[in-house]
Measured scan of single mutants.
Amino acid sequence: MEVRTIKVFTTVDNINLHTQVVDMSMTYGQQFGPTYLDGADVTKIKPHNSHEGKTFYVLPNDDTLRVEAFEYYHTTDPSFLGRYMSALNHTKKWKYPQVNGLTSIKWADNNCYLATALLTLQQIELKFNPPALQDAYYRARAGEAANFCALILAYCNKTVGELGDVRETMSYLFQHANLDSCKRVLNVVCKTCGQQQTTLKGVEAVMYMGTLSYEQFKKGVQIPCTCGKQATKYLVQQESPFVMMSAPPAQYELKHGTFTCASEYTGNYQCGHYKHITSKETLYCIDGALLTKSSEYKGPITDVFYKENSYTTTIK
């Protein structure tokens, strides 16, 4: 009895394709271990004539594949690729409408935090270190965002349907971005203890939790000093293409032309909904596939993004 075979390709990165001759009487799992086709788990399936010449994702289970996976995804987590594939199996079914010149995501599976993050990423200057993220990001900007969303979920250790947080998501993504040249110098002034300067680099240099107003941050924000008295913390120097200011959701007025974009969060910790506000020729609110415009805006804002380049204080 002759062994019926077909020729397929296996890959971990969709760049390096490895030619395989597979036995049609055995499952993919018996031949390769966990195997995925377009995100779908085909591990328990036997090869079919229609699979001839198709590319299958496999887990990096030998040295060659491990090197290829690390170079593309910059992670050695053995569960990463499987999590990416199972997320992709959902995100490829989502709709990605162009809204006001940006790629958004039609609401499904509690994905409003991903839509808000995706919209924000198209408006701030950011370059990702893992080629996987950078490639998928370019495709997302062009309207094909399924891979990018699935990668975000995998890097953030999230599953489809789980509630997510924009600030946490951005923080994970910033860790995989090139923020080497970003720098922030802060000064804390206390009447009792004097003053202390701190220099922050990388992710810490672009994120701040405690106030939404970048102007206020430049002037000074009140913080408790270690001595128990009130101290003032203010920005001395900022070198970065953008800054992200966050605070627990509270009524906040966004003035046209003073910011790049913002995240609105309605609801409580267990259950809520994100919308995205962007400042173009007027203010726009993007909620999944829905767009509304207004000249002014007041609502429960939790993150505001500002364009920056270089700032030095005039406070002496």
Rank of each mutant, 00 (worst) to 15 (best):
N157T: 02
G194N: 00
R83N: 10
C182E: 02
K7G: 14
A136C: 06
N49M: 10
P60R: 07
T198H: 14
Y252G: 03
Y72P: 05
I223C: 15
I301P: 00
A150P: 03
E281V: 04
G228P: 01
A205H: 03
M24C: 15
G228H: 00
L179W: 07
E264V: 11
F259V: 03
E308L: 10
L235S: 01
L283V: 11
K44W: 10
D287M: 00
V42C: 13
S240W: 00
F70D: 07
A231P: 00
L290N: 15
Y284M: 11
H273F: 00
C193Q: 01
T282L: 11
T292N: 07
K293S: 14
C227K: 01
K44C: 07
T120R: 03
S213H: 05
K95A: 15
C225Y: 01
T198W: 12
A69H: 08
S171Y: 12
R139T: 11
Q197Y: 07
E204L: 08
L200F: 12
L200T: 11
C156Y: 04
G82Y: 07
F305D: 07
F217R: 01
K127G: 08
D287V: 01
T258M: 11
A40R: 13
T232R: 09
C271P: 03
I6M: 12
T198N: 11
Q251V: 12
N147D: 14
A69V: 09
V188C: 09
N187D: 08
T232L: 13
K280E: 14
I105W: 03
D62Y: 06
L153A: 04
M85I: 11
A247P: 02
G29M: 13
A132M: 04
Y172E: 05
K7H: 12
G228W: 01
Y113P: 05
M24H: 08
K280L: 14
Y269P: 15
L37P: 04
G202I: 02
M85V: 07
I45T: 13
A132Y: 04
K307E: 12
E308F: 07
T5M: 13
P300V: 15
K158M: 05
Q230M: 13
F128R: 04
K219F: 07
K219Q: 14
A142K: 14
T19D: 12
Y214Q: 02
T35G: 05
G161W: 05
K219M: 09
N187C: 15
L254C: 00
Q230V: 13
Q197M: 10
L153F: 10
T312D: 07
M170L: 11
V3N: 13
T266W: 06
A132K: 03
T226S: 14
Q30F: 06
T312W: 08
S79H: 10
I286Y: 10
I45F: 13
K218A: 06
D165W: 01
T64D: 12
R141A: 13
Q134S: 10
T282R: 10
A262E: 01
R141N: 08
